[in-house]
Design a protein around this nucleic acid. Structure first.
Length: 578
RNA sequence: CGGGGCGUAGCGCAGUCUGGUUAGCGCGUCUGGUUUGGGACCAGAAGGUCGGGAGUUCGAAUCUCCCCGCCCCGACCA
């Protein structure tokens, strides 16, 4: 492509509003243009990169034996009603009515396609002989974001690869899942991303039924718990916390003392008033587990993880108790709950075992206890000590003797064992070899294609612009004749351009009548991996100048046979990403 | 939806507090010329519902009220 004939609106300055590097650079390099909050135009350069990401995904899905289909973006609302997800999605589901023959047909834009694909399979798959099968599509998804942000990372419309596996057995599901997991690893490494596959919250199925593929980035919205020494990685929701040692040694138990804490209910306020650290305090939260009240105790500086509580308690449903229940259970206003004298079951985080002389709510208005000690003043059942909190920075690693870090990350992919939730709801059944009917066992697997680009840029750029890997770069080579008015320069450049095209290289010819500085700056900004310069200076000696985007120094290359040589360099670089 | 910020030419901004010629500056764009190895120079030109509406005033980009849009933090994100 000739630069003068396409649309690459590069910008010297970044538009107001863009803050994170990927957003700024995608705008400045002319990859995207915002249409409204959460919706972007993909301009030629951005579209080419997106298509390359899409192609990698497609190739790896095909290699893994998944079968491509295309499902509609518009779907009948009734399908979502059958699985109860109209309410589950709430405002995220974009709904509308279309007038047809005087009637108003309720529809929704697909935020994902479990319902559609399960309905599809229920109609055409009825025998174990047809299983397993994995269907996938690359489609635009729609999710109304209350607050779109971070450029292309959180939008209301995005390109997603979603795959769904259908199996006759749990073992089959595990095999299908593993195939997708492996395919994802290949996709992200081909895209040049430094990714981490982390254990993720897996819902009712349990086990290692869900993994997220994360790219560590300061601007990521997710938090990953990571151990540098053993490589343990999990998302915050899921991460286990390691046990600490026993009770603090050398600290004598003080007497349980009632202190005044007027009008002061929060951990932060109490710690300020009593001149203590939040980690000396205990947070007492009253929950309803399947309707039954219980108290959960964690250290003042920790956060309760409700999924962990739900699992520990063995409840189907868990929610924070409403105010009236809290007041009834604690016989005090909200903010002064504590474990001493409570009649509901107590569940305590492991870390409480290592605490002495805790500060707790006194279950009386405007009062706390200091010098509260486990065993003497309150005693949860031994089996009620559990991991019920979110991991925190510096926690002991659950797998080794190291410590974990909390790192921000961008989620680029997610694999999930679904089970039979949708096949049951939508009647996707099969007959086994003993003529017994069963619900099909499903898995679902998503990749955010746009996020591949944003995550790459977020983690691969410098002060001059983007640094594309060969696999995603909108063009592999940028060919820059420095002076288009100079005949021999233009002649050599045009000839080389044609030869490179013939070699099957994606080449962008910067034929603009611009000064060299402009061309160099733009080439760096849009991040094309290999830059080839045709300029009067080296051309006099029959040379071109070539420079990798990621290297500082340019080198010379004889004009004669240059196309072949460049093609070889590009081919060698391509091989790093297959 | 709660808190904060912003909205003036394609992009980045000044001017608004303290109302008063014809609304400026840089970049970009166009014309002509000189240039040509890291965002050139000279001369000229085009380009504006000052986010929208209502109000106050002799007079509003500037003051008041309402609305809209965008960004950030939070809540939300099967």
């Amino acid at each position: 492509m000739r630069w003068s004939q396409t649309l690459i609106p590069t910008m010297k300055e970044s538009p107001e509003g863009a803050e994170i590097p990927s957003h700024v650079l995608m705008l400045r390099a002319g990859l995207i243009h915002q249409v409204m909050a959460g919706a972007y135009n993909y301009l030629p350069l951005g579209l080419r990169a997106l298509k390359k990401a899409e192609r990698i995904v497609r190739e790896e899905m095909d290699r893994a034996g998944a079968i491509e289909v295309l499902m509609p973006a518009i779907t009948p609302l009734s399908l979502w009603e059958r699985t109860g997800r109209v309410t589950a999605f709430g405002n995220v589901l974009i709904q509308f009515k279309v007038s047809r023959a005087g009637k108003h047909v309720p529809m929704a834009l697909g935020p994902t396609h479990e319902e559609v694909v399960t309905d599809l399979v229920s109609r055409f798959v009825s025998s174990y002989r047809q299983l397993p099968i994995t269907l996938y599509q690359i489609q635009t998804k729609f999710r109304n974001e209350e607050r779109p942000r971070f450029g292309v990372l959180r939008t209301s419309e995005f390109l997603m690869k979603d795959a769904y596996s259908f199996d006759a057995s749990v073992e089959g599901l595990s095999a299908s899942y593993q195939k997708m997991y492996d395919a994802y690893c290949r996709v992200f490494s081909r895209a040049g991303l430094a990714y981490l596959a982390v254990e993720a919250e897996s819902g009712p199925i349990g086990g290692d039924a869900s993994h997220e593929f994360m790219v560590l980035a300061d601007n990521g919205e997710d938090v990953v718990v990571h151990c540098a020494s053993c490589g343990y990685a999990a998302n915050l929701e899921r991460a286990e916390t390691g046990k600490r040692g026993g009770r603090k040694s050398g600290e004598a138990a003080q007497a349980l003392t009632l202190v005044d804490t007027p009008q002061v209910g929060s951990i932060e306020q109490v710690s300020k008033l009593l001149h203590c650290k939040p980690e000396q305090m205990v947070k007492t939260l009253i929950y309803l587990a399947d309707g039954q009240p219980l108290a959960v105790l964690v250290r003042g500086d920790h956060d309760v993880n409700e999924n962990k509580v739900r699992r520990a308690v063995g409840a189907k449903q868990l929610e924070l108790a409403p105010v009236d229940v809290i007041e009834k259970v604690t016989k005090a206003p909200v903010g002064f709950a504590g474990p001493v004298g409570l009649s509901v079951p107590l569940w305590a985080d492991h870390d409480l075992a290592a605490m002495a002389n805790m500060i707790v709510g006194a279950n009386q208005a405007d009062k706390h206890y200091t010098g509260c000690n486990l065993g003497r003043d309150f005693a949860p059942a031994v089996e009620h000590f559990a991991d019920v909190r979110n991991a925190a920075d510096g926690d002991p690693c659950p797998r080794c003797s190291g410590k974990v870090d909390l790192r921000h990350a961008i989620e680029v992919g997610h694999v999930f064992k679904l089970g039979t939730k949708y096949s049951t709801a939508l009647g996707a059944k099969f007959l086994d070899d003993k003529e017994q009917q069963h619900d099909v066992i499903m898995g679902c697997y998503g990749i955010g294609v746009n996020r591949i680009l944003a995550a790459l840029i977020e983690t691969s750029h410098d002060e001059n612009g983007i640094r594309w890997p060969m696999s995603l770069a909108p063009y592999e080579v940028i060919l820059s004749p420095l002076n288009v008015a100079q005949e021999d320069v233009m002649q050599a450049a045009t000839k080389l351009y044609d030869e490179l095209l013939a070699e099957g290289i994606d080449v962008l010819l910067d034929d603009r009548d611009q000064r060299p500085g402009v061309k160099f700056k733009d080439a760096d900004l849009i991040g094309i991996p290999l830059r080839v310069v045709v300029g009067g200076r080296s051309l006099k000696d029959g040379n071109l100048e070539i420079k990798w985007r990621h290297e500082g120094q340019a080198s010379h290359l004889p004009l004669a046979g240059a196309a072949r040589k460049i093609a070889e360099m590009v081919t060698a670089e391509r091989k790093k990403y297959v």
